[in-house]
Design a protein around this nucleic acid. Structure first.
Lengths: 352, 352
DNA sequence: ATGAAAGCGCTAACAT
DNA sequence: ATGTTAGCGCTTTCAT
């Protein structure tokens, strides 16, 4: 069979060189804006480039340079605004720094590790977010792959990590709920599911403990409205119904809210509900929640990665700079759903 | 200066070959699972691969194969669930087909064209969505670049296009509002901004015209809550306030809703409001809107692209298959915000 | 200022 | 079944 299985090549540097009557080195120099080319030669080359419609092959260039000029980012999915915002912040900065962006959504697939490793092979640096792959994978890449930045997951030695604060705001939230007079609590969400949820539960528990109130075991559920609703339906059937339900994120809280309303309960009078993330719907549902700087998370990661890539490119005898770790602050946003305030006018979009 | 600007190479196929005492061809065959290698040789090679921690270079492989094994997608941003869902649907299918995904958010940057062209250089096929770059760019890539699929933008000859229906549902929406008794309308959104909005305005206008009601000029605004709110504030100050406001998307509608409430008006009694997209907040705000199959949009694009890439890879003497074009159906979702129904019980999540 | 040539790491046709 | 070798398209010494 004569089928050409290989993609037909475009215009190459050789054709341009021939057309301009110069060597490929000169064409290359012209394309890279080297000043070792006389204006006349340059003009001749440019003319040939124009006539032929030449665009340097990224593959050829990358192979020769040993650089992809691309960054990767690994996240679980794009459902809900959280990851989308992080990715957006990341992409924007990376693009400004002249780097293309490869994405990988793991969707909880079991072959995620292989895909992440494959991605590591296509980029000069990458971000790995929580809930995607285990530390073994991260450690392997850290050891022999491109520079890494961890986002929203527990740090491991030698790898830069950037997170948002969970414990502090969760504790603040618990204290706020206690101040409302609530004494029977529930936590909906799975601390084993992600470091973020673990931190939120820990802060929540610390707050209750400090208030001398018993800490409930978490009601485990996944990150969506339906899961929250199902969890709440079970919760509301208990003999001793909780007065306040703290949820792992806004979707879950919105599900709990829906279930409560459907059960004939009024939020917050019969049941207080809180979320996390401050998604758009939270505002319209009057949900008390915690806002976190999602875009900044992505943007910072992109900058840090760029630093690592740049330092690795330079003198390799110099030791790499110190491992960085940062926790960005979050902001409790109080709306109606956490309970009626006992004094003063009803709060509107108060932020502490 | 002695700085090694070139990235230190990893383990190469040559080192593995030497270690295993075979030629690089045999190593290559082993890695590609060719059956032209005896089990013993294969084992020896695999051992060497293991000991050395060899991973084939994607760059070397791609250059030799003339294939990136990657797809691209260009969209304006990831604000709001619309593009995020499309991207997610696209990524999921592309990953299943063994292709990495490169994203490019144009953010309305003026150098978007250059970035899109650069992206075209890194992929075997790409999706271009509306509101990103002009047809000149698309046409240029169609002529000399990788296969293309257009999503949510007007078709151009020779390029596959996939859209969701705007006119039909918009007209249905207008008819529904007329049935509520509304007679003075406003449309908030910019038809010049995207083909989608143009289609929605056209359907809306057609519906009003058929009902013998004057068609208002669009109140132009961008795609966010604040813009909608600002537009509504101006609108509500007019001497003859509209009875119903049809918005280009849910964010705008939510902004209009907010402005109306702040102005002391009740939705829908004093003002009916409708959106488009059915974002999560729409449900909690009781917003009448139109749902579109966002993920399917992305998934279909990924499949079509795969077809094109595959057919191009095979016998090039065979002409390419016909240009495809498809319009996915949308679904009017009626909630409270469009007006009180004159007969029967209040509608709840009715879908027509 | 320009050219010749040696890679970069791999695949695949061809030879044995 | 395995090896040899010629690319793939570019960058970058090293000469001139």
């Amino acid at each position: 069979m004569k089928a050409l299985s290989k993609r037909r090549a475009g215009v190459t540097i050789y054709q341009v060189a021939q057309r301009a009557g110069v060597s490929i080195a000169t064409v290359s120099r012209t394309m890279r804006d080297s000043d070792l080319v006389t204006p006349e030669t340059r003009a001749r080359v440019l003319a040939a480039v124009e006539e032929l419609g030449f665009t340097p092959s990224r593959l050829g260039r990358s192979l020769a340079e040993g650089q992809h000029a691309a960054n990767g980012i690994v996240f679980p999915d794009l459902i809900g605004p959280y990851y989308a915002e992080v990715v957006l912040g990341y992409e924007e900065v990376a693009a400004d720094l002249g780097r293309s962006v490869l994405i990988l959504a793991t969707h909880g697939r079991r072959d995620a590790a292989a895909q992440v490793l494959e991605l590591a092979n296509r980029v000069d640096g990458m971000v790995v977010m929580g809930r995607t792959v285990g530390d073994e994978v991260v450690e392997r890449i850290a050891a022999s792959g491109p520079p890494l930045v961890l986002v929203a997951r527990d740090p491991i030695s030698t790898v830069d990590t950037i997170r948002t604060d969970n414990e502090r705001s969760a504790r603040e939230l618990a204290e706020h709920l206690l101040a409302h007079g609530h004494r029977r609590f529930a936590f909906v969400g799975d601390p084993d599911d992600s470091p973020d949820v673990a931190g939120r539960y820990a802060g929540f528990a610390a707050g209750l403990r400090a208030g001398g109130v018993p800490v409930p075991a978490p009601v485990r559920c996944s990150f969506d409205i339906e899961a929250g609703r199902a969890a709440a339906e079970a919760l509301l059937r208990r003999r001793s119904r909780p007065q306040a339900v703290v949820c792992a994120n806004d979707e879950v809280a919105l599900g709990v809210h829906t279930a409560a309303t459907e059960a004939g309960l009024t939020v917050p009078d019969d049941l207080a509900v809180t979320g996390w993330d401050d998604v758009m719907a939270a505002r319209f549902a009057g949900l008390t929640t915690v806002r976190q700087p999602m875009r900044e998370l992505g943007a910072t990661a992109a900058h840090w990665l760029h630093d690592r890539i740049t330092e690795r490119g330079s003198d390799r005898s110099r030791p790499p700079s110190a491992v960085r770790s940062q926790v960005l602050p979050t902001q409790l946003t109080v709306r109606r759903s956490c309970g009626t305030h006992r004094t003063g006018p009803p709060p509107r979009e108060v932020q502490t």
